[in-house]
Design a protein around this nucleic acid. Sequence first.
DNA 1: TTTCAACACTCAAACGTTTGCGGAAAATAG
DNA 2: CTATTTTCCGCAAACGTTTGAGTGTTGAAA
Lengths: 340, 340
Amino acid sequence: MKPKLTLKQIARELDVSISTVSKALRDSSEIGEDTRQKIKAFAKLYNYRPNNIALSLKNRKTKTIGIIIPEIVHYFFTTVISGVEQVANEKGYNVIVCLSNNSFDKEVLNLELLANGSTDGFILSMAKETMQKEDYHHLTEVINQGMPVVLFDRVVDQIHCDKVIIDDVIGAKKAVQYLVDKGAKKIGLVSTVDYVSVGKLRTRGYLEVLRDNNVEVDEDLILKIEDMDNSETEIKEFIDKNDVDAVFAVNEHFAIHAIKAIQEKGLKVPEDVSVIGFTDGELSKRFIPSLTTVSQHGERMGAEAARLLIDKLERKPEEEESYKTVIVETSLVERNSTKS
Amino acid sequence: MKPKLTLKQIARELDVSISTVSKALRDSSEIGEDTRQKIKAFAKLYNYRPNNIALSLKNRKTKTIGIIIPEIVHYFFTTVISGVEQVANEKGYNVIVCLSNNSFDKEVLNLELLANGSTDGFILSMAKETMQKEDYHHLTEVINQGMPVVLFDRVVDQIHCDKVIIDDVIGAKKAVQYLVDKGAKKIGLVSTVDYVSVGKLRTRGYLEVLRDNNVEVDEDLILKIEDMDNSETEIKEFIDKNDVDAVFAVNEHFAIHAIKAIQEKGLKVPEDVSVIGFTDGELSKRFIPSLTTVSQHGERMGAEAARLLIDKLERKPEEEESYKTVIVETSLVERNSTKS
DNA sequence: TTTCAACACTCAAACGTTTGCGGAAAATAG
DNA sequence: CTATTTTCCGCAAACGTTTGAGTGTTGAAA
């Protein structure tokens, strides 16, 4: 068990000063050719690697970025992480992942912890509880300390920072318009309650398409799920009660519950009823019938977020502050839950 | 933009020395009651938080653990992370996640990077490429430096360290025995090639059950998938060609491909053919029919791994070295892809 | 021989902490 | 009133780096 080589040990071993070693390894012209070679050879032989922590302290930057998400056991978030990780690694950054479990307190805790030197900046999607409380002081505080933050997916206007979002409204419109184009007349919507921003936006897209196509909105055909744990039975009742020829669901789970309910009602997907989901996850691909969905391109979102963050981190301080919001386009992936 | 309070600034502001501030904040009895109160009040008012990096350097420990996995867009791994994160957080540790993308080189790179001071220890599941190459020098080197490592899921005997695995053989036996008990006579196996250790072990479980029940092994009923990308068609051909009354698949995807193929052949699941998968993911729960599977309890594995690692990290140096392998039991989750 | 530049290297401070030790002032004892 | 203890605080080193300033030696020019 050899306890990790330091500059000091090399210096002692080779009978030079620490600074000589440091400079030699960094190819400074201050050091004579032969000592330089000698030191480099020694370092190589014993596989010297500078200590990251010491470097972080000295440079006042850690080269790591923190990503805080509500939960990790969720396809969309993992694709985002994947995207972040990819560009972060490319640019020499590490990624440290924290989970808020959708709890406000844990989000605050994580943020505080990482803000004390552990990371140079954050990529974050807000916890559900945070959005309900509308308490963002932990975020504004971190931003005030000069730490760059990029919000994605679940964002909020009150916070001034870079953001990466998808065109929820447009995405929903693409989906619903697609259904209309295929001849659907009575399109059901399975959404979430309105304080979940994505639910609200996707609902808006749904309404806009109906309006654009002069279809009257039937409030009975709109279901807003309050309690996720109870979504299956709620959806079943909704489908049983209403007579629809198409369903637009704001996520995968709602979509497959709808399909299940439709099938149990004795109808067929897509022959009798078409179904479109949102979020292109594992489930959509593998389900039978496979789901036509609006793909959110999580990986691309993560990559964009990482790029925004790193840009800000490596920006010269003289450049002036400016916040961007990049919108990642959604796309409709046609599969077997809709008529072709 | 206030640039983060340090001890030095507090000291200057209150006209005392840095050490006085430090000691006061740590409630040292060396400091007089009134100055102590004054300093603590000031620190609280301006929300002082010690700099983690400086602490890490001083204490020579970072209170973060690294987890390196082959890919994150994979249900099992996310549950493991979730488990790790939970107990790590409980004990005041951070988790930094790196992906090897199943590449040997990236695994080495990540390991080296994190080993240079960024983390106190590792939790790791090996990249496929690493297992093929059988080159573990990067791991042994890190271990030799005195950095604790816990391997999980994809482990290897050559490396001496703590390990967390599942009882692959027993899990497979549970599944296959279950099929036998339900009256299956011709049980197909859909597995992977043998250098993937889990494939090999699960195959062994399958064989043992057949032997224990005096069923003759029919090599035609065993499919070993080489190329994941081509698994769907391979499985379809396999099902079309062979007449089975049950299928045991070593993962979710193989299981649903089998179901799909069976259905396309005009047979019904579970009435005509029962199917059991391995790995209890999103897909198993949501698929129609939902899958009977062997659950791997990833979260529990992650938690165990984290506990092992932290134990080792906080162990007194005088205690002697010893490596444990904990086996996390699998359990059979009965759903609708098997006859009840 | 003196003067000065070039060279090769070392010193010391800094990043933000913690902590053993030493020291001055105040309190107590003799 | 001196001697000793106690109280309270500052100094400095340490963790592992980087880097500007400083120092000593050499060789060549004047």
